[in-house]
Design a protein around this nucleic acid. Structure first.
Lengths: 245, 245
DNA sequence: CCGGCGGGTTGAGCCAGATCAAGGCCAACT
DNA sequence: AGTTGGCCTTGATCTGGCTCAACCCGCCGG
């Protein structure tokens, strides 16, 4: 039997001073908002971590020395109940920031959904830099409040929407989230598996599957492959999503 | 038939320069983190609004000129679906801040649950002040990330917990939230009605009622009155809450 | 003292979505 | 080509919580 070899924390590149200038995610991320002088300091703090698909970045309950910035790929971020029930609280893509709300311990787990690279920063020095750089702090506040608004929408979804409404809302929201893949309108990539969609929407795998087949049957969507979806009738999809008031 | 006379926005006291020094909520709120010079500017911006029980502070979808800070009383903040289903996204108490995540329009409605006073600020000048006051911005970021963490816990609750677990978690969380009423340990005041608890926990009134009677029958809680609750067996309550991993 | 009204509780039955179980599809190995 | 394993789909059945409908209780006004 081969030894298990899931990388525990991924491998770390260590040319301590990083080339933020050439980072593809810079424009998307908090790094885009700092002046050159601060960018150099940020680069000094950063360690590039490469994650294989499925690799663990943080585990809920463990000490939390780092905060992260996703540069390529994608992460699933989730919480667990003692008996294993899982709620995915978000999918992160290039440019997304992870770790603000943490105290001494991580309050969520994060894993790569595909080959992924992140910049990680020691919390202490990062906080110090933030406090000394107003534009950086401003950017973080801006992003955090948007994340909060998104979380509140998700509460509405989880607390009050039906299965069909959840899937419809999900499919309408997804495209905006993966800047690395600006797709043709109507085309939605599903980098996550059915089980992840289910755990994000508070449903089961079977229900997700059934709802998607029903949508196919109704001509609302079509699926060239299991992870590629085309919205054939955006109007119907929007109608099903029962959007805001 | 008497004319309806629910105050639409409550009444506004206008001694334009407010006495923040004597404000009971100052220590609890963002105002506690600003230097005296900035506090004066904050006071100039503030308008005190008094709300009767049930009065509307903001309505989802309407233009959003203000942000708010609760000084006394409590608010329910919620989102609606077109057919009237409601998700309460939070209860606010003295010291809590409302309105960061808003763009041009409110994305939630807020109503007083009891006689309540809030300070309101025009968004533009408030933002300007925030950008010029690093401690204020820092405080806002701190609070917003905590709110985000709370929202993520609520997602876990709404997506994956059973009715009993939801109520148990709720009863354990509540006491921490109303600083104006530091109660004896084990005693929980329920300033909200059953329907509001239900809409906060993604349940129905009937289920909330049934679960509470079941808890009474099991000796976990007792209820001297409909809005006063005593946790008789915190251990059992915690066991039912199925806390974090 | 009565009636109405706004909560809250309780019961009976139902249903959306969970659970349990069986296959199907496809890519990676042997 | 056959086998294995991961993922997805589909069907049959079950059930937690919802819906519908009484009913209760305390409060207020007449």
């Amino acid at each position: 039997m081969p030894a298990p070899r899931l990388p525990r924390h991924g491998c770390v590149d260590r040319p301590k001073v990083n080339d933020c200038d050439s980072c593809g995610a810079r424009a998307l991320s908090i790094c885009g908002s700092v002046a050159d002088s601060d960018l150099a300091r940020l680069g000094d703090l950063a360690e590039v971590v490469k994650l294989a698909a499925g690799a663990v970045l943080t585990r809920e309950g463990e000490p939390a020395p780092y905060v992260f910035n996703v540069t390529t790929g994608s992460l699933r971020v989730y919480k667990l109940l003692p008996d294993g029930r899982r709620q995915i609280i978000g999918f992160l893509f290039a440019g997304d920031f992870l770790g603000l709300a943490i105290g001494e311990f991580y309050v969520f787990s994060a894993e790569a959904m595909e080959p992924t690279t992140v910049c990680r920063f020691r919390k202490g020095p990062f906080r110090a830099l933030v406090e000394s750089s107003s534009p950086l702090e401003h950017m973080l506040l801006h992003r955090t409040s948007h994340e909060l608004a998104a979380a509140q929408n998700q509460m509405l979804l989880l607390g009050r929407k039906t299965a069909i409404e959840r899937l419809a809302s999900f499919l309408l929201d997804l495209p905006g989230h993966d800047p690395a893949r600006p797709t043709v309108p109507g085309h939605v990539r599903l980098p996550m598996k059915r089980g992840e969609i289910a755990d994000y929407l508070g449903l089961t795998i079977e229900t997700v599957s059934r709802v998607l087949t029903r949508m196919k049957a109704n001509g609302i969507i079509s699926m060239p492959s299991q992870s590629d979806l085309i919205v054939e009738r955006p109007d119907l999809l929007r109608a099903h999503a029962g959007g805001e008031i």
